[in-house]
Amino acid sequence: MSPSRPAGPATVLLAPDKFKGSLSAREVVVALETGLRAADPTVVVRSVPVADGGDGTVSAALAAGFERVPVTVTGPTGEQVSTCWAREGATAVVELADACGLERLPGAPAPLAASSRGLGDVLHDVLRSDVDRVVVGIGGSASTDGGAGMLAALGARLLDRDGRVVTDGGGALADVVALDLSGLPQRLGEVEVLVACDVDNPLTGPEGAAAVYGPQKGATPAEVEVLDAALASWADVVAATVGTDHRDLAGAGAAGGVGLAAVAVLGAVLRPGVELVLDLVDFGAHVAGADLVVVGEGSLDEQSLRGKAPVGVATAAGRAGVPVVAVCGRRQVTDEQLRAAGILAAHALSELEPDPERSIAEAGRLLEQVAPLLLQHGFLSHRGRAAGDPRP
């Protein structure tokens, strides 16, 4: 036992992301805490639900004590949806996914028509307040419109050759020949905008927004070609308007090109999503004095290792000298990959319930069953034992 960690009840910090399609990060915390306390009533459980910039980002801020600010915005295909942003002091947290993301599609995907306008609606509401820093999570988008809808909602005018305003959606971007930014709020120049971005895709080309993410949003090969050409045309217009071409910037293709519009027009800075969230929730204060950090998400796979929430949390916990284990719905990485990412072990629900549908439906109950296994790791198993206790 480390002399810096005296004997006594074990302190476990629960810092999971959501189990997508099954449980929110908060629900994961509740299930794990229930299981831990049933296994050892003396265990000290702390929690700080996290996210990586996609859906759940605002929820993580709210769980950390931010105030909820409700707002009605335009969904990805024009319907009105109720969402919210979060505020603490002069900082606001905004989430694209809950405003106009894939989960907000009322029916089938609409790759050519879906828009980022809802994000702009939320930002417009934020700018009416007195905040001076906005953190924007852009994961989970339904659109490939280069951020045009977002800009239109903020007051920009996208005009065709006849001076008419162009309709929303990536498919219409090819008609835009002029971008009028005179209607943007003056407050934009007074606010720091930080965008949570975990991809390095440029706007166009084989690694661009349409080619890589369009199929995930329902685009056929022919529609991918249409969208890529439209984004290239849009990039020409944006560059001519602001004086700099950002299409090849790493992250310009994030959220169907919202990354481009955010940097080029809003003056945003792109940062790794989980780093922004950990700063917002003051992870350093939560991890201090913990004996174990538990991370988690639905699928622990190769994508997780590329800066998603579990690895981001593990990195931060490692800097604090606290060991990390993971829980997940399914695991698709090796022990060696986990250890390289700073995670000592992973417990998958699929080990208890191999049927994926049942595992998803009963994730809460299964997490309660997994929780006691977290207390069997060597750095916790001896905590709280009196001197001379013969147990191994």
Rank of each mutant, 00 (worst) to 15 (best):
V48D: 04
V48T: 13
P49V: 13
P49G: 11
P49K: 06
V50N: 10
A51T: 12
D52C: 07
D52Y: 11
D52H: 08
G53F: 13
G54A: 10
D55W: 03
D55M: 06
D55T: 08
T57H: 07
T57C: 09
T57E: 13
T57K: 10
S59Q: 15
S59P: 00
A60G: 12
A60R: 03
A63T: 08
A63P: 00
A63D: 15
A64H: 03
E67H: 09
R68E: 15
V69G: 05
P70H: 07
P70R: 05
V73M: 10
G75V: 10
P76I: 02
P76A: 06
G78S: 07
E79R: 12
V81K: 06
V81A: 13
V81C: 10
S82M: 01
T83L: 02
T83M: 03
T83C: 12
W85V: 04
R87E: 01
R87N: 01
G89E: 02
A90Q: 12
A90P: 00
T91G: 00
T91I: 14
T91D: 03
A92H: 04
A92L: 09
A92C: 07
V93E: 08
V93W: 03
E95R: 01
L96R: 07
L96G: 03
L96P: 03
D98Y: 01
D98V: 05
R104N: 05
L105E: 13
L105F: 01
L105T: 04
P106K: 08
P106Q: 11
G107K: 02
G107Y: 00
A108T: 14
A108H: 07
P109G: 03
P109Y: 13
P111Y: 12
L112T: 06
L112M: 10
A113M: 01
A113S: 05
A113D: 03
S115C: 08
S115Y: 10
S116C: 09
R117Y: 12
G118A: 13
L119P: 01
L119I: 06
L119W: 08
G120Q: 02
G120E: 04
V122Y: 01
L123M: 13
H124Q: 05
D125F: 05
L127K: 11
L127A: 06
R128E: 15
S129A: 14
